[in-house]
């Protein structure tokens, strides 16, 4: 099929960017979206033009490195699907596709569609862990965890850190990302000792990185490839208030 592309091109964070037009013939419906981008870049090399820079790695929806705004939606038209898992069968012959980077003040553009998501690492550095140094661990079955608790913790832990929640949020909020880690560790017995300090440190860091606040639109949950629930944001607020009252 024939596809028309309008892609954001920007050389560096300091230079202005613009949408640029491209056309591709011979796009197969079985191609993944990123294979379509490979095809485009192959054609640009043949024309001696600089390729479109985009982030991607595992191409199986788990590493969280890929991510583009496709026709105005984070990761494209499907719900709960990463860009790399999107296939061209979701488009039809003659379609025009708008491709832009994940935009947020806390995610500066590196080049074209590549953005810098170090702010997420900073939030984890603040306290997104249990302080269990190598060698300190007790016998694993010494900590019993109910099946339902383990499953609920997993649901939160499944986040791949792609940033689609931030990109899709009108406030560029990172609360879905941050609350998922807070919930996982607040649910598990291993996370109890640092529970109060953790939520305060992570929320403060999230604010310091320049992410906005949640106004309950819930668009993030729709786009999240791992279906992380917005209920975690409610829990985060509960944990934050609990920590503020009880321990601070």
């Amino acid at each position: 099929m024939k596809i028309y592309l309008k892609i954001w091109r920007q050389d560096s964070p300091a230079t202005p960017g613009a949408m640029k037009n491209y056309e591709l013939d011979d796009v197969s419906a079985d191609m993944s979206f990123l294979e379509m981008m490979d095809l485009l870049n192959e054609s640009l090399i043949q024309k001696s033009e600089r390729v479109v820079e985009f982030d991607h790695d595992c191409r199986e929806g788990i590493c969280g490195q890929c991510g583009m705004m496709i026709n105005g939606r984070a990761h494209g038209p499907l719900t709960h699907t990463t860009t790399c898992q999107l296939h061209m069968r979701s488009f039809k012959d003659g379609d025009t596709i708008y491709i832009e980077p994940f935009r947020a003040a806390a995610f500066p553009i590196v080049r074209d569609l590549k953005v810098d998501r170090k702010a997420f690492d900073k939030i984890i550095q603040a306290s997104g862990f249990t302080s269990a140094s190598t060698g300190e661990a007790p016998e694993a079955n010494g900590i019993l965890i109910a099946h339902t608790i383990a499953e609920a913790a997993f649901d939160a832990a499944a986040c791949i850190g792609c940033g689609a929640c931030v990109a899709t949020c009108k406030n560029s909020s990172a609360e879905l990302f941050t609350s998922a880690k807070i919930t996982q560790l607040a649910l598990l017995p291993q996370g109890q000792v640092e529970r109060a300090d953790r939520v305060i440190a992570m929320v403060d860091q999230m604010d310091a990185e320049g992410f906005g606040h949640c106004t309950n639109t819930e668009a993030c949950e729709v786009e999240c490839p791992q279906e992380i629930s917005v209920l975690h944001i409610a829990r985060m607020n509960y944990e934050y208030n609990r920590a503020s009252i009880i321990s601070h």
Partner: peptide
């Protein structure tokens, strides 16, 4: 043991 201490949510029996 180490992974469980870190909060890795391994599958659990009832």
């Amino acid at each position: 043991d180490q992974a469980v201490a870190q909060g890795v949510p391994f599958a659990r029996e009832y």
